[in-house]
Design a protein around this nucleic acid. Structure first.
Lengths: 262, 262
DNA sequence: CAGGGCCGTCAAGATCGCATCAAGATCGCC
DNA sequence: GGCGATCTTGATGCGATCTTGACGGCCCTG
Protein backbone atom coordinates (compact mmCIF):
# COMPACT_ATOMS: atom_id res chain seq x y z
CA UNK A 1 0.00 0.00 0.00
CA UNK A 2 2.85 2.38 -0.45
CA UNK A 3 1.72 5.82 -1.24
CA UNK A 4 -1.49 5.60 0.65
CA UNK A 5 -1.64 7.63 3.74
CA UNK A 6 -4.62 6.12 5.40
CA UNK A 7 -5.87 2.63 5.19
CA UNK A 8 -8.80 2.86 7.49
CA UNK A 9 -11.77 0.77 6.67
CA UNK A 10 -14.98 2.36 5.70
CA UNK A 11 -16.71 1.99 8.98
CA UNK A 12 -13.86 2.88 11.19
CA UNK A 13 -15.08 5.87 12.97
CA UNK A 14 -12.36 8.41 12.75
CA UNK A 15 -15.09 10.82 11.96
CA UNK A 16 -18.36 9.08 11.97
CA UNK A 17 -20.55 10.20 9.15
CA UNK A 18 -17.97 12.44 7.56
CA UNK A 19 -17.73 12.29 3.79
CA UNK A 20 -14.66 10.37 2.74
CA UNK A 21 -12.73 11.79 -0.15
CA UNK A 22 -9.72 10.19 -1.75
CA UNK A 23 -7.32 12.75 -3.19
CA UNK A 24 -4.88 11.46 -5.78
CA UNK A 25 -2.01 13.71 -6.77
CA UNK A 26 1.73 13.34 -7.07
CA UNK A 27 2.48 16.92 -6.11
CA UNK A 28 2.93 17.07 -2.33
CA UNK A 29 2.11 20.76 -2.32
CA UNK A 30 -1.27 20.38 -3.87
CA UNK A 31 -1.90 17.28 -1.84
CA UNK A 32 -1.25 19.18 1.32
CA UNK A 33 -3.29 22.17 0.27
CA UNK A 34 -6.25 20.01 -0.58
CA UNK A 35 -5.93 18.01 2.57
CA UNK A 36 -6.04 21.13 4.69
CA UNK A 37 -8.87 22.74 2.83
CA UNK A 38 -11.04 19.69 2.60
CA UNK A 39 -10.45 18.75 6.19
CA UNK A 40 -11.43 22.27 7.18
CA UNK A 41 -14.74 21.65 5.46
CA UNK A 42 -15.15 18.49 7.48
CA UNK A 43 -14.33 15.97 4.85
CA UNK A 44 -12.42 12.91 5.89
CA UNK A 45 -9.41 13.00 3.58
CA UNK A 46 -7.36 10.08 2.39
CA UNK A 47 -4.52 10.61 -0.04
CA UNK A 48 -2.65 8.63 -2.65
CA UNK A 49 0.37 9.65 -4.69
CA UNK A 50 0.13 7.44 -7.74
CA UNK A 51 -2.36 5.57 -9.82
CA UNK A 52 -1.70 2.12 -8.48
CA UNK A 53 -2.16 3.00 -4.87
CA UNK A 54 -5.22 4.98 -5.83
CA UNK A 55 -6.79 1.90 -7.33
CA UNK A 56 -6.07 -0.30 -4.35
CA UNK A 57 -7.01 2.26 -1.75
CA UNK A 58 -10.41 2.84 -3.27
CA UNK A 59 -11.11 -0.78 -2.49
CA UNK A 60 -9.81 -0.39 1.03
CA UNK A 61 -11.21 2.97 1.99
CA UNK A 62 -14.49 3.07 0.10
CA UNK A 63 -14.41 6.82 -0.41
CA UNK A 64 -17.57 8.71 -1.23
CA UNK A 65 -15.74 10.62 -3.93
CA UNK A 66 -12.39 10.62 -5.69
CA UNK A 67 -10.42 13.71 -6.68
CA UNK A 68 -7.99 12.62 -9.34
CA UNK A 69 -5.10 14.57 -10.74
CA UNK A 70 -4.12 13.68 -14.27
CA UNK A 71 -0.50 13.22 -15.08
CA UNK A 72 0.42 10.73 -12.42
CA UNK A 73 3.86 9.13 -12.64
CA UNK A 74 2.79 5.54 -13.15
CA UNK A 75 -0.53 5.37 -14.94
CA UNK A 76 -2.34 7.51 -17.46
CA UNK A 77 -5.41 9.27 -16.19
CA UNK A 78 -7.73 7.30 -18.40
CA UNK A 79 -6.23 4.09 -17.09
CA UNK A 80 -7.00 5.03 -13.53
CA UNK A 81 -10.52 6.05 -14.45
CA UNK A 82 -11.11 2.90 -16.41
CA UNK A 83 -9.67 0.79 -13.61
CA UNK A 84 -12.14 2.27 -11.20
CA UNK A 85 -15.13 2.27 -13.49
CA UNK A 86 -14.60 -1.41 -14.07
CA UNK A 87 -16.14 -2.10 -10.71
CA UNK A 88 -17.35 1.00 -8.91
CA UNK A 89 -19.59 3.98 -9.54
CA UNK A 90 -17.84 6.28 -7.10
CA UNK A 91 -17.89 9.87 -8.41
CA UNK A 92 -14.59 10.95 -9.94
CA UNK A 93 -13.63 14.61 -10.23
CA UNK A 94 -10.60 15.17 -12.40
CA UNK A 95 -8.06 17.90 -11.85
CA UNK A 96 -5.72 18.84 -14.65
CA UNK A 97 -3.31 21.54 -15.62
CA UNK A 98 -4.10 20.98 -19.26
CA UNK A 99 -6.86 23.10 -20.68
CA UNK A 100 -6.88 21.17 -23.90
CA UNK A 101 -10.40 20.31 -24.83
CA UNK A 102 -9.40 16.86 -26.06
CA UNK A 103 -8.17 15.90 -22.62
CA UNK A 104 -11.47 16.81 -21.07
CA UNK A 105 -13.33 14.77 -23.61
CA UNK A 106 -11.27 11.65 -23.13
CA UNK A 107 -11.39 11.88 -19.36
CA UNK A 108 -15.14 12.44 -19.26
CA UNK A 109 -15.80 9.70 -21.77
CA UNK A 110 -13.61 7.33 -19.81
CA UNK A 111 -16.05 7.72 -16.97
CA UNK A 112 -15.08 10.83 -15.03
CA UNK A 113 -17.90 12.87 -13.59
CA UNK A 114 -16.35 16.30 -13.73
CA UNK A 115 -13.24 18.03 -14.93
CA UNK A 116 -11.60 21.08 -13.43
CA UNK A 117 -8.57 22.85 -14.85
CA UNK A 118 -5.82 24.24 -12.70
CA UNK A 119 -5.53 26.71 -11.36
CA UNK A 120 -8.91 26.44 -9.80
CA UNK A 121 -10.68 28.22 -7.03
CA UNK A 122 -11.20 26.24 -3.89
CA UNK A 123 -14.78 27.47 -3.69
CA UNK A 124 -15.51 26.04 -7.10
CA UNK A 125 -13.91 22.73 -6.29
CA UNK A 126 -15.93 22.47 -3.13
CA UNK A 127 -19.12 23.30 -4.98
CA UNK A 128 -18.41 20.67 -7.61
CA UNK A 129 -17.67 18.12 -4.93
CA UNK A 130 -20.96 18.92 -3.25
CA UNK A 131 -22.77 18.54 -6.54
CA UNK A 132 -21.14 15.20 -7.26
CA UNK A 133 -21.80 13.84 -3.79
CA UNK A 134 -25.38 15.06 -3.84
CA UNK A 135 -26.00 13.29 -7.13
CA UNK A 136 -24.57 9.99 -6.04
CA UNK A 137 -26.48 10.23 -2.78
CA UNK A 138 -29.82 10.64 -4.50
CA UNK A 139 -28.83 7.98 -6.97
CA UNK A 140 -28.09 5.30 -4.42
CA UNK A 141 -30.06 6.06 -1.33
CA UNK A 142 -32.55 8.53 -2.59
CA UNK A 143 -35.51 7.88 -0.42
CA UNK A 144 -35.57 6.07 2.83
CA UNK A 145 -32.43 5.80 4.77
CA UNK A 146 -34.02 3.59 7.37
CA UNK A 147 -35.17 0.13 6.50
CA UNK A 148 -36.98 -2.18 8.83
CA UNK A 149 -37.98 -5.82 8.77
CA UNK A 150 -39.12 -8.18 11.42
CA UNK A 151 -37.71 -6.75 14.64
CA UNK A 152 -34.69 -5.19 12.93
CA UNK A 153 -34.08 -1.60 11.99
CA UNK A 154 -31.28 -0.59 9.66
CA UNK A 155 -30.21 3.04 9.52
CA UNK A 156 -28.14 3.50 6.39
CA UNK A 157 -27.16 7.07 7.12
CA UNK A 158 -25.92 6.39 10.62
CA UNK A 159 -24.56 2.99 9.78
CA UNK A 160 -26.39 1.48 12.66
CA UNK A 161 -28.47 -1.61 13.20
CA UNK A 162 -30.97 -2.23 15.94
CA UNK A 163 -32.91 -5.24 16.91
CA UNK A 164 -35.70 -4.95 19.39
CA UNK A 165 -34.38 -1.52 20.19
CA UNK A 166 -30.96 -2.81 21.09
CA UNK A 167 -27.89 -2.00 19.06
CA UNK A 168 -26.53 -4.88 17.06
CA UNK A 169 -22.83 -4.68 16.54
CA UNK A 170 -21.63 -5.40 13.01
CA UNK A 171 -18.03 -5.70 11.93
CA UNK A 172 -16.90 -3.45 9.08
CA UNK A 173 -17.11 -6.26 6.57
CA UNK A 174 -20.51 -7.32 7.74
CA UNK A 175 -21.76 -3.78 7.39
CA UNK A 176 -20.39 -3.32 3.90
CA UNK A 177 -22.19 -6.41 2.76
CA UNK A 178 -25.44 -5.56 4.42
CA UNK A 179 -25.30 -2.03 3.06
CA UNK A 180 -25.02 -3.13 -0.54
CA UNK A 181 -27.80 -5.64 -0.14
CA UNK A 182 -30.10 -3.17 1.57
CA UNK A 183 -29.43 -0.46 -0.98
CA UNK A 184 -30.63 -2.83 -3.65
CA UNK A 185 -33.53 -4.09 -1.66
CA UNK A 186 -35.48 -6.64 -3.63
CA UNK A 187 -32.89 -6.83 -6.35
CA UNK A 188 -30.64 -9.73 -6.91
CA UNK A 189 -27.08 -8.75 -6.13
CA UNK A 190 -24.55 -10.91 -7.90
CA UNK A 191 -21.74 -12.53 -5.99
CA UNK A 192 -19.32 -10.54 -8.10
CA UNK A 193 -20.91 -7.22 -7.18
CA UNK A 194 -20.78 -8.10 -3.53
CA UNK A 195 -17.15 -9.13 -3.66
CA UNK A 196 -16.21 -6.00 -5.58
CA UNK A 197 -18.07 -3.72 -3.25
CA UNK A 198 -16.67 -5.18 -0.07
CA UNK A 199 -13.23 -6.45 -0.98
CA UNK A 200 -12.40 -4.62 -4.18
CA UNK A 201 -11.29 -6.15 -7.43
CA UNK A 202 -8.63 -8.42 -6.03
CA UNK A 203 -10.86 -10.91 -4.32
CA UNK A 204 -13.35 -11.34 -7.08
CA UNK A 205 -13.43 -15.09 -6.87
CA UNK A 206 -13.50 -15.66 -3.13
CA UNK A 207 -17.10 -16.69 -3.03
CA UNK A 208 -16.48 -18.51 0.20
CA UNK A 209 -16.13 -15.17 1.96
CA UNK A 210 -19.71 -14.47 1.07
CA UNK A 211 -20.89 -17.65 2.69
CA UNK A 212 -19.08 -16.95 5.91
CA UNK A 213 -20.32 -13.40 6.29
CA UNK A 214 -23.81 -14.08 5.09
CA UNK A 215 -24.04 -16.71 7.77
CA UNK A 216 -22.88 -14.22 10.37
CA UNK A 217 -25.37 -11.61 9.25
CA UNK A 218 -28.13 -14.14 9.41
CA UNK A 219 -27.10 -15.18 12.86
CA UNK A 220 -27.29 -11.59 13.97
CA UNK A 221 -30.38 -10.46 12.10
CA UNK A 222 -32.60 -13.32 11.04
CA UNK A 223 -35.31 -14.54 13.37
CA UNK A 224 -34.41 -18.06 12.35
CA UNK A 225 -30.89 -18.08 10.92
CA UNK A 226 -31.18 -21.52 9.39
CA UNK A 227 -34.33 -20.53 7.54
CA UNK A 228 -33.45 -17.09 6.25
CA UNK A 229 -36.33 -15.00 5.01
CA UNK A 230 -34.70 -11.67 4.43
CA UNK A 231 -31.14 -12.44 3.48
CA UNK A 232 -31.85 -14.88 0.74
CA UNK A 233 -29.51 -17.00 -1.33
CA UNK A 234 -30.17 -17.42 -5.00
CA UNK A 235 -27.96 -20.42 -5.69
CA UNK A 236 -25.43 -19.84 -8.39
CA UNK A 237 -26.49 -16.25 -8.92
CA UNK A 238 -26.14 -14.15 -5.84
CA UNK A 239 -28.02 -12.84 -2.85
CA UNK A 240 -31.13 -10.79 -2.27
CA UNK A 241 -32.35 -8.69 0.60
CA UNK A 242 -36.07 -8.84 1.24
CA UNK A 243 -38.03 -6.82 3.74
CA UNK A 244 -41.25 -8.75 3.47
CA UNK A 245 -40.90 -12.41 4.16
CA UNK A 246 -42.42 -14.35 1.36
CA UNK A 247 -45.43 -16.22 2.55
CA UNK A 248 -44.22 -19.46 1.16
CA UNK A 249 -42.41 -21.99 3.27
CA UNK A 250 -42.99 -25.60 2.64
CA UNK A 251 -44.59 -25.91 6.01
CA UNK A 252 -43.40 -28.02 8.80
CA UNK A 253 -46.00 -30.59 9.00
CA UNK A 254 -49.49 -30.05 10.04
CA UNK A 255 -50.20 -31.04 13.51
CA UNK A 256 -49.26 -28.82 16.32
CA UNK A 257 -50.12 -25.35 15.64
CA UNK A 258 -48.55 -22.05 15.24
CA UNK A 259 -44.97 -22.96 15.17
CA UNK A 260 -42.62 -20.06 15.13
CA UNK A 261 -44.46 -18.87 12.12
CA UNK A 262 -43.68 -15.58 10.55
CA UNK B 1 -46.35 27.81 -24.34
CA UNK B 2 -44.92 30.78 -26.05
CA UNK B 3 -41.28 30.54 -26.55
CA UNK B 4 -41.22 26.81 -26.78
CA UNK B 5 -40.48 25.49 -30.17
CA UNK B 6 -41.54 21.96 -29.73
CA UNK B 7 -44.18 20.63 -27.42
CA UNK B 8 -43.98 16.99 -28.17
CA UNK B 9 -44.68 14.70 -25.33
CA UNK B 10 -42.17 12.27 -24.09
CA UNK B 11 -43.78 9.41 -25.86
CA UNK B 12 -44.08 11.09 -29.18
CA UNK B 13 -41.69 9.33 -31.40
CA UNK B 14 -40.26 12.01 -33.52
CA UNK B 15 -36.99 10.24 -33.18
CA UNK B 16 -37.57 7.12 -31.28
CA UNK B 17 -34.83 6.48 -28.78
CA UNK B 18 -33.02 9.71 -29.44
CA UNK B 19 -31.87 11.59 -26.38
CA UNK B 20 -34.03 14.63 -25.77
CA UNK B 21 -32.23 17.78 -24.76
CA UNK B 22 -33.90 21.04 -23.83
CA UNK B 23 -31.75 24.07 -24.67
CA UNK B 24 -32.64 27.27 -22.86
CA UNK B 25 -31.06 30.47 -24.08
CA UNK B 26 -32.27 33.91 -25.02
CA UNK B 27 -29.64 34.49 -27.64
CA UNK B 28 -30.99 33.25 -30.99
CA UNK B 29 -27.48 32.86 -32.33
CA UNK B 30 -26.35 30.47 -29.67
CA UNK B 31 -29.66 28.72 -29.73
CA UNK B 32 -29.32 28.07 -33.39
CA UNK B 33 -25.70 26.98 -33.13
CA UNK B 34 -26.52 24.53 -30.39
CA UNK B 35 -29.53 23.22 -32.20
CA UNK B 36 -27.50 22.47 -35.30
CA UNK B 37 -24.61 20.93 -33.46
CA UNK B 38 -26.66 18.80 -31.14
CA UNK B 39 -28.96 17.65 -33.87
CA UNK B 40 -25.93 16.67 -35.88
CA UNK B 41 -24.95 14.41 -33.01
CA UNK B 42 -28.38 12.86 -33.12
CA UNK B 43 -29.89 14.50 -30.11
CA UNK B 44 -33.50 15.47 -30.30
CA UNK B 45 -33.41 19.18 -29.56
CA UNK B 46 -36.14 21.28 -28.02
CA UNK B 47 -35.55 24.95 -27.34
CA UNK B 48 -36.87 27.61 -24.99
CA UNK B 49 -36.08 31.31 -24.87
CA UNK B 50 -36.88 32.23 -21.31
CA UNK B 51 -37.15 30.79 -17.86
CA UNK B 52 -40.90 30.44 -17.69
CA UNK B 53 -41.25 28.51 -20.90
CA UNK B 54 -38.29 26.41 -19.87
CA UNK B 55 -40.09 25.36 -16.70
CA UNK B 56 -43.30 24.47 -18.48
CA UNK B 57 -41.65 22.70 -21.37
CA UNK B 58 -39.67 20.44 -19.09
CA UNK B 59 -43.00 19.14 -17.89
CA UNK B 60 -44.23 18.75 -21.43
CA UNK B 61 -41.21 17.34 -23.13
CA UNK B 62 -39.57 15.35 -20.34
CA UNK B 63 -36.09 15.94 -21.69
CA UNK B 64 -33.26 13.65 -20.73
CA UNK B 65 -31.09 16.67 -20.05
CA UNK B 66 -31.38 20.46 -19.82
CA UNK B 67 -28.80 22.93 -21.10
CA UNK B 68 -29.46 26.19 -19.32
CA UNK B 69 -28.01 29.58 -20.08
CA UNK B 70 -27.78 31.94 -17.15
CA UNK B 71 -28.91 35.50 -17.62
CA UNK B 72 -32.35 34.91 -19.00
CA UNK B 73 -34.62 37.91 -19.36
CA UNK B 74 -37.35 36.89 -16.96
CA UNK B 75 -35.95 34.68 -14.21
CA UNK B 76 -32.64 34.36 -12.46
CA UNK B 77 -30.70 31.22 -13.17
CA UNK B 78 -31.02 29.95 -9.65
CA UNK B 79 -34.77 30.39 -9.82
CA UNK B 80 -35.00 28.23 -12.89
CA UNK B 81 -32.81 25.60 -11.32
CA UNK B 82 -34.76 25.65 -8.10
CA UNK B 83 -38.03 25.48 -9.98
CA UNK B 84 -36.89 22.34 -11.72
CA UNK B 85 -35.26 20.70 -8.75
CA UNK B 86 -38.51 21.05 -6.86
CA UNK B 87 -39.88 18.11 -8.77
CA UNK B 88 -37.40 16.56 -11.14
CA UNK B 89 -33.90 15.15 -11.10
CA UNK B 90 -33.23 15.80 -14.77
CA UNK B 91 -29.55 16.69 -15.26
CA UNK B 92 -28.96 20.42 -15.69
CA UNK B 93 -25.86 21.74 -17.42
CA UNK B 94 -25.40 25.45 -16.99
CA UNK B 95 -23.85 27.73 -19.58
CA UNK B 96 -22.63 31.13 -18.55
CA UNK B 97 -20.51 33.97 -19.82
CA UNK B 98 -19.49 34.83 -16.30
CA UNK B 99 -16.34 33.20 -15.07
CA UNK B 100 -16.88 34.42 -11.57
CA UNK B 101 -16.38 31.61 -9.17
CA UNK B 102 -19.27 32.73 -6.99
CA UNK B 103 -21.71 32.24 -9.83
CA UNK B 104 -20.58 28.69 -10.29
CA UNK B 105 -20.97 27.96 -6.64
CA UNK B 106 -24.49 29.32 -6.40
CA UNK B 107 -25.60 27.54 -9.56
CA UNK B 108 -24.13 24.21 -8.51
CA UNK B 109 -25.48 24.49 -5.01
CA UNK B 110 -28.88 25.36 -6.36
CA UNK B 111 -28.91 21.97 -7.97
CA UNK B 112 -27.11 22.23 -11.29
CA UNK B 113 -25.04 19.26 -12.34
CA UNK B 114 -22.36 21.01 -14.30
CA UNK B 115 -21.22 24.48 -15.23
CA UNK B 116 -19.48 25.55 -18.41
CA UNK B 117 -18.22 29.04 -19.12
CA UNK B 118 -18.51 30.67 -22.50
CA UNK B 119 -16.87 30.57 -24.80
CA UNK B 120 -16.75 26.82 -24.72
CA UNK B 121 -15.68 24.15 -27.14
CA UNK B 122 -18.45 22.12 -28.64
CA UNK B 123 -16.47 18.94 -28.07
CA UNK B 124 -16.31 19.66 -24.37
CA UNK B 125 -19.99 20.46 -24.14
CA UNK B 126 -20.83 17.23 -25.88
CA UNK B 127 -18.56 15.26 -23.58
CA UNK B 128 -20.14 16.82 -20.51
CA UNK B 129 -23.58 16.08 -21.84
CA UNK B 130 -22.61 12.46 -22.40
CA UNK B 131 -21.25 12.24 -18.86
CA UNK B 132 -24.41 13.72 -17.37
CA UNK B 133 -26.71 11.49 -19.38
CA UNK B 134 -24.65 8.42 -18.56
CA UNK B 135 -24.90 9.14 -14.85
CA UNK B 136 -28.61 9.68 -14.81
CA UNK B 137 -29.14 6.59 -16.90
CA UNK B 138 -27.37 4.36 -14.41
CA UNK B 139 -29.03 6.20 -11.55
CA UNK B 140 -32.54 5.44 -12.68
CA UNK B 141 -31.54 1.87 -13.20
CA UNK B 142 -32.30 2.05 -16.87
CA UNK B 143 -35.99 1.90 -16.15
CA UNK B 144 -38.16 -0.85 -14.86
CA UNK B 145 -38.24 -3.76 -17.17
CA UNK B 146 -41.11 -5.94 -16.16
CA UNK B 147 -42.82 -8.27 -18.55
CA UNK B 148 -46.08 -9.98 -17.74
CA UNK B 149 -48.18 -12.66 -19.31
CA UNK B 150 -50.97 -14.76 -18.02
CA UNK B 151 -50.44 -14.88 -14.25
CA UNK B 152 -46.69 -14.53 -14.53
CA UNK B 153 -44.56 -11.47 -13.93
CA UNK B 154 -40.93 -11.34 -15.01
CA UNK B 155 -38.74 -8.62 -13.53
CA UNK B 156 -35.57 -8.45 -15.56
CA UNK B 157 -33.81 -5.92 -13.34
CA UNK B 158 -34.39 -7.81 -10.13
CA UNK B 159 -33.96 -11.16 -11.79
CA UNK B 160 -37.14 -12.35 -10.26
CA UNK B 161 -40.17 -14.24 -11.46
CA UNK B 162 -43.56 -14.27 -9.78
CA UNK B 163 -46.64 -16.22 -10.49
CA UNK B 164 -49.85 -15.29 -8.78
CA UNK B 165 -47.78 -13.09 -6.53
CA UNK B 166 -45.61 -15.94 -5.34
CA UNK B 167 -41.96 -16.17 -6.13
CA UNK B 168 -41.04 -18.80 -8.64
CA UNK B 169 -37.56 -20.08 -8.15
CA UNK B 170 -35.48 -20.49 -11.27
CA UNK B 171 -32.09 -22.10 -11.48
CA UNK B 172 -29.28 -20.10 -13.09
CA UNK B 173 -29.57 -21.99 -16.34
CA UNK B 174 -33.30 -21.59 -16.47
CA UNK B 175 -32.97 -17.89 -15.83
CA UNK B 176 -30.36 -17.36 -18.52
CA UNK B 177 -32.56 -19.00 -21.08
CA UNK B 178 -35.67 -17.14 -20.06
CA UNK B 179 -33.80 -13.86 -20.02
CA UNK B 180 -32.60 -14.20 -23.56
CA UNK B 181 -36.02 -15.18 -24.79
CA UNK B 182 -37.76 -12.36 -22.95
CA UNK B 183 -35.29 -9.79 -24.17
CA UNK B 184 -36.17 -10.76 -27.70
CA UNK B 185 -39.84 -10.93 -26.98
CA UNK B 186 -41.81 -11.85 -30.06
CA UNK B 187 -38.73 -12.62 -32.07
CA UNK B 188 -37.38 -15.99 -32.97
CA UNK B 189 -34.25 -16.96 -31.07
CA UNK B 190 -32.23 -19.62 -32.81
CA UNK B 191 -31.10 -22.70 -31.00
CA UNK B 192 -27.55 -21.68 -31.64
CA UNK B 193 -28.02 -18.29 -30.01
CA UNK B 194 -29.57 -19.87 -26.99
CA UNK B 195 -26.81 -22.42 -26.61
CA UNK B 196 -24.14 -19.78 -27.06
CA UNK B 197 -25.76 -17.44 -24.58
CA UNK B 198 -26.26 -20.01 -21.87
CA UNK B 199 -23.51 -22.56 -22.32
CA UNK B 200 -20.94 -20.75 -24.42
CA UNK B 201 -19.31 -21.96 -27.59
CA UNK B 202 -18.42 -25.43 -26.39
CA UNK B 203 -21.90 -26.81 -26.27
CA UNK B 204 -23.15 -25.40 -29.51
CA UNK B 205 -24.64 -28.67 -30.66
CA UNK B 206 -26.29 -29.88 -27.48
CA UNK B 207 -29.78 -29.11 -28.63
CA UNK B 208 -31.10 -31.63 -26.19
CA UNK B 209 -30.22 -29.26 -23.35
CA UNK B 210 -32.70 -26.85 -24.78
CA UNK B 211 -35.45 -29.40 -24.71
CA UNK B 212 -34.83 -30.24 -21.11
CA UNK B 213 -34.76 -26.70 -19.85
CA UNK B 214 -37.55 -25.43 -22.03
CA UNK B 215 -39.68 -28.17 -20.57
CA UNK B 216 -38.76 -27.05 -17.06
CA UNK B 217 -39.55 -23.46 -17.80
CA UNK B 218 -42.88 -24.43 -19.23
CA UNK B 219 -43.63 -26.52 -16.20
CA UNK B 220 -42.93 -23.56 -13.98
CA UNK B 221 -44.50 -20.81 -16.03
CA UNK B 222 -47.03 -22.05 -18.54
CA UNK B 223 -50.66 -22.40 -17.50
CA UNK B 224 -50.74 -25.62 -19.44
CA UNK B 225 -47.20 -26.93 -19.88
CA UNK B 226 -48.10 -29.43 -22.54
CA UNK B 227 -49.77 -26.76 -24.63
CA UNK B 228 -47.32 -23.88 -24.40
CA UNK B 229 -48.63 -20.52 -25.47
CA UNK B 230 -45.78 -18.25 -24.48
CA UNK B 231 -42.66 -20.35 -24.75
CA UNK B 232 -43.12 -21.53 -28.25
CA UNK B 233 -41.11 -24.00 -30.28
CA UNK B 234 -40.40 -23.23 -33.89
CA UNK B 235 -39.40 -26.65 -35.12
CA UNK B 236 -36.01 -26.78 -36.66
CA UNK B 237 -35.43 -23.09 -36.06
CA UNK B 238 -35.47 -22.16 -32.44
CA UNK B 239 -37.76 -20.78 -29.78
CA UNK B 240 -39.86 -17.70 -29.31
CA UNK B 241 -41.28 -15.92 -26.30
CA UNK B 242 -44.75 -14.45 -26.70
CA UNK B 243 -46.60 -12.36 -24.13
CA UNK B 244 -49.98 -12.50 -25.79
CA UNK B 245 -51.29 -15.98 -26.10
CA UNK B 246 -51.81 -16.48 -29.74
CA UNK B 247 -55.43 -17.28 -30.31
CA UNK B 248 -54.36 -20.15 -32.41
CA UNK B 249 -55.22 -23.68 -31.68
CA UNK B 250 -58.27 -25.77 -31.84
CA UNK B 251 -59.64 -24.75 -35.11
CA UNK B 252 -58.52 -26.89 -37.91
CA UNK B 253 -58.44 -23.98 -40.13
CA UNK B 254 -60.76 -23.70 -42.91
CA UNK B 255 -61.03 -26.31 -45.39
CA UNK B 256 -59.16 -25.69 -48.47
CA UNK B 257 -55.56 -25.31 -47.94
CA UNK B 258 -54.89 -22.95 -45.19
CA UNK B 259 -51.46 -24.23 -44.62
CA UNK B 260 -50.35 -23.96 -41.07
CA UNK B 261 -50.41 -20.25 -41.14
CA UNK B 262 -47.99 -17.88 -39.47
C1' DC C 1 -47.04 -47.23 -44.94
C1' DA C 2 -42.24 -47.07 -43.35
C1' DG C 3 -38.39 -44.25 -41.93
C1' DG C 4 -35.90 -40.37 -40.25
C1' DG C 5 -35.79 -36.03 -37.93
C1' DC C 6 -37.11 -33.38 -34.32
C1' DC C 7 -39.20 -32.74 -30.12
C1' DG C 8 -41.16 -33.63 -25.26
C1' DT C 9 -40.74 -36.34 -21.17
C1' DC C 10 -38.63 -38.85 -17.59
C1' DA C 11 -35.24 -40.49 -14.43
C1' DA C 12 -30.66 -41.53 -12.63
C1' DG C 13 -25.83 -40.48 -11.81
C1' DA C 14 -22.31 -36.93 -11.57
C1' DT C 15 -21.21 -32.54 -10.26
C1' DC C 16 -21.56 -28.18 -8.20
C1' DG C 17 -22.71 -24.79 -4.68
C1' DC C 18 -23.91 -23.69 -0.13
C1' DA C 19 -24.18 -23.85 5.11
C1' DT C 20 -21.73 -24.72 8.93
C1' DC C 21 -17.97 -25.31 12.05
C1' DA C 22 -13.57 -24.45 13.69
C1' DA C 23 -8.80 -23.30 13.74
C1' DG C 24 -5.04 -20.32 12.37
C1' DA C 25 -3.50 -15.59 10.95
C1' DT C 26 -3.87 -10.50 11.42
C1' DC C 27 -5.13 -6.39 13.00
C1' DG C 28 -5.89 -2.75 16.30
C1' DC C 29 -5.73 -1.21 20.82
C1' DC C 30 -4.02 -0.94 25.46
C1' DG D 1 4.13 -7.40 24.38
C1' DG D 2 -0.38 -9.13 25.26
C1' DC D 3 -5.26 -9.50 24.31
C1' DG D 4 -9.65 -9.41 22.02
C1' DA D 5 -11.86 -8.71 17.81
C1' DT D 6 -11.86 -9.58 13.12
C1' DC D 7 -10.54 -11.66 8.97
C1' DT D 8 -8.98 -15.67 6.33
C1' DT D 9 -8.84 -20.44 5.21
C1' DG D 10 -9.89 -25.34 5.04
C1' DA D 11 -12.81 -29.52 5.72
C1' DT D 12 -17.21 -31.77 5.81
C1' DG D 13 -21.96 -33.04 4.66
C1' DC D 14 -26.01 -32.30 2.14
C1' DG D 15 -29.16 -30.73 -1.22
C1' DA D 16 -29.83 -28.50 -5.60
C1' DT D 17 -28.55 -28.44 -10.18
C1' DC D 18 -26.62 -30.10 -14.35
C1' DT D 19 -25.72 -33.66 -17.56
C1' DT D 20 -26.79 -37.67 -19.96
C1' DG D 21 -29.25 -41.39 -22.03
C1' DA D 22 -33.47 -43.75 -23.27
C1' DC D 23 -38.15 -43.87 -24.91
C1' DG D 24 -42.22 -42.48 -27.41
C1' DG D 25 -44.97 -39.21 -30.19
C1' DC D 26 -45.54 -36.16 -34.06
C1' DC D 27 -44.75 -34.58 -38.71
C1' DC D 28 -42.85 -34.63 -43.04
C1' DT D 29 -40.88 -37.30 -46.81
C1' DG D 30 -40.41 -40.87 -49.86
Amino acid sequence: MTGVSDTRRATDTGKAGAIRVLVVDDDPQILRALQINLTAHSYHVVTARDGRSALTSVGDVHPDIVVLDLGLPDLAGTEVIAGLRAWTQVPIVVLSARTDSADKVTALDAGADDYITKPFGMAELLARLRAAVRRSATATGGGERIVTFADVEIDLARKRVRRNGRDVHLTPTEWEMLELLVQHRGKLVSQRDLLLHVWGPRREDRTNYLRVYLAQLRRKLEPNPSHPRHLITEPGMGYRFETVSDTDEPVVAVAGDGEQAR
